[in-house]
């Protein structure tokens, strides 16, 4: 591309681009690329669970509706967010894919909000006690980063088309998936703590991603070349 930088007229540019072109492998469909990424993210999540081990009370929690809702709304937000990101990379797909994860995000937040209410009903004011959990925050950031690395590379073509929408969907996806994985081996005292620490980590991942989208896509493009 270095010879393209010095080109002045559009005709020269066209000449140069067509002379420089060669076979360009077509991308796999968004669905297949999504499945490939899911396999990578699944292996990261699986390794993490293997390393930390499942929480001791998982047998009692898993059958409960509240735990199932918290886990699945978070996980499905992540799965839908990732699919939306892969769809948005294709320039000919509708912009509205970007809003598809929002209802799922809303249901996750609603579930956590409902959990806060249930804690208050069962435990009184103590149910709304709030403590620090930097471990949760750090884990979500760390796992999100690991899951985001292959994802950003696979989404690099969005850098010049829809960088903001794609990176927000991707950030939401990796953060909520990390949050779902975290609930499998880490326990927080109240739903309010989950809402605040998991929620703020998700916001942080999206904000970091959005601010760093330019360099992230640029570096991915350079690596791909």
């Amino acid at each position: 591309m270095s010879d393209i930088g010095s080109i002045r007229s559009t005709e020269d540019l066209i000449q140069s681009l067509s002379a420089a072109t060669g076979p360009a492998g077509r991308l796999l469909s968004p669905w297949w690329r999504y499945l490939i990424w899911l396999a990578l993210a699944g292996s990261i999540a699986g390794s993490s669970i293997y390393f930390h081990g499942l929480r001791s009370d998982i047998d009692q929690l898993w059958p409960t509706l509240r735990y199932q809702l918290e886990f699945w709304t978070s996980a499905v937000t992540g799965l839908v967010g990732a699919y939306s990101a892969f769809m948005l990379v294709q320039p000919d797909r509708d912009d509205r894919w970007a809003v598809l994860p929002l209802p799922f995000l809303g249901s996750w937040l609603l579930t956590l909000g409902g959990g806060c209410y249930m804690d208050f009903v069962h435990m009184g004011p103590e149910g709304l006690s709030f403590g620090t959990s930097w471990h949760c925050f750090g884990y979500i950031l760390e796992t999100s980063f690991l899951m985001a690395l292959p994802m950003v590379f696979m989404l690099r073509h969005a850098g010049r088309i829809r960088p903001g929408a794609v990176i927000l969907c991707a950030g939401l996806s990796v953060a909520t998936l990390s949050s779902a994985v975290l609930t499998l081996f880490h326990d927080l005292d109240t739903a309010l703590m989950v809402l605040i620490w998991h929620g703020s980590a998700t916001v942080a991942v999206c904000v970091f991603g959005f601010c760093l989208r330019g360099p992230a896509f640029f570096i991915s493009e350079r690596i791909a070349r």
Partner: peptide, 13 residues
């Protein structure tokens, strides 16, 4: 034109 060139593999015929 440069963008078309850099994302031409995203086109599905």
């Amino acid at each position: 034109l440069l963008t078309i060139h850099s994302v031409r593999q995203t086109y599905d015929p």
